[in-house]
Amino acid sequence: PAHPYDRLKTTSTDPVSDIDVTRREAYLSSEEFKEKFGMTKEAFYKLPKWKQNKFKMAVQLF
């Protein structure tokens, strides 16, 4: 299930529990994912792991 970005980011005051914290981005809706990352999930997962992590750090999901 998708969760709002505000509850997934590492600085959230009301974090979602029971998620894989190493894959926070996977819980974003497709729309919100595209808004935050500027690309689709499919394109994101084709990137090298280090680049994925760099993007995730930039949007507080790492």
Rank of each mutant, 00 (worst) to 15 (best):
P15E: 04
M57F: 08
Y27R: 01
L28G: 02
V59M: 13
F62H: 15
D6T: 00
T40F: 03
D18L: 08
M57H: 12
E35D: 12
T13P: 10
S17G: 13
P48Y: 01
V21S: 09
E42D: 11
K41I: 10
K41H: 08
V59R: 06
L28Q: 02
S30Y: 11
K41A: 08
L47Q: 02
E25K: 03
E42N: 15
Q52C: 01
K34T: 13
W50V: 03
F33L: 01
A26Q: 14
Y45M: 03
P48E: 02
M39H: 01
Q60W: 11
K56V: 08
A58D: 11
P1Q: 13
D18W: 03
Y5W: 07
S29H: 07
P4L: 11
A58V: 09
T10V: 13
F44D: 00
L8G: 04
H3F: 15
A58G: 04
Y5A: 07
E35M: 08
R24D: 02
D20G: 11
R23N: 06
M57Q: 11
T11H: 06
E25H: 03
F33K: 00
Y5L: 06
T40P: 03
T22K: 09
S12M: 05
K9P: 08
S29M: 02
D6G: 00
Q52F: 00
Y27F: 02
K41V: 09
G38P: 02
D6S: 01
M57W: 13
T10A: 03
V59T: 07
F44S: 00
L61I: 06
S17W: 13
K46A: 13
N53S: 08
D6M: 00
P4S: 09
V16A: 08
V16L: 08
A58R: 09
A58L: 14
K56T: 02
E42R: 06
E42V: 09
S12A: 12
Y27Q: 06
P1C: 14
D6I: 00
P4H: 09
Y45L: 02
T40Y: 02
S29Q: 02
M57C: 15
F37G: 00
S17Y: 14
G38M: 08
F44N: 00
A43K: 12
K9V: 12
E32A: 05
A58I: 12
S29R: 02
P15R: 04
T13K: 09
K54Q: 14
K54M: 14
Y45C: 10
E35Y: 08
D18P: 06
E31H: 12
Y27P: 06
E25Q: 02
L28E: 02
V59H: 10
K49E: 11
V16H: 04
M57L: 12
T13V: 12
Y45V: 05
D14T: 07
I19S: 03
F44L: 00
K41D: 01
D20H: 07
N53P: 00
Y27I: 04
L61Q: 05
R7C: 14
P1M: 14
K46T: 10
S30A: 13
L8Y: 05
Y27G: 04
S12Q: 04
L47I: 01
A26G: 04
F44R: 00
W50C: 09
R7M: 05
D14Y: 12
P48H: 00
E25S: 03
K36W: 13
K51H: 08
K51R: 11
F62S: 15
W50Q: 02
K51A: 14
S12V: 03
N53R: 10
Y27D: 05
E32P: 01
P48N: 01
V16M: 06
E35T: 10
P15A: 04
S30I: 13
K36T: 14
T22H: 11
N53Q: 10
W50E: 09
Y5C: 13
L47V: 01
A2L: 15
H3S: 09
F62M: 14
N53F: 10
P15S: 03
K34A: 13
T10Q: 06
E25G: 02
L61K: 05
F37I: 02
Y45K: 04
E32M: 05
K56W: 12
K9N: 09
K34Y: 15
V16C: 09
K51E: 14
S30L: 10
T10F: 06
R23W: 05
F55P: 00
T11W: 02
N53K: 08
T40Q: 02
K56D: 01
K51S: 05
T11Y: 04
S17V: 13
E35R: 08
D18A: 09
D14N: 14
A2H: 15
F37Q: 00
I19T: 03
R23A: 04
Q52S: 01
Q60F: 14
G38Q: 07
K36G: 01
E32Q: 07
T11D: 12
Y5R: 04
K49S: 09
T11K: 03
E25N: 05
F55N: 03
K51M: 15
V21P: 12
P48G: 00
S30W: 11
Y45E: 11
S30E: 14
K34W: 14
Q52A: 08
T11M: 04
K49A: 09
K54R: 13
F37E: 00
D14Q: 07
F33R: 00
P1K: 14
V21R: 07
K41Y: 08
H3G: 04
D18R: 08
T11V: 05
F62D: 15
H3M: 07
T13L: 13
A26W: 15
D20K: 04
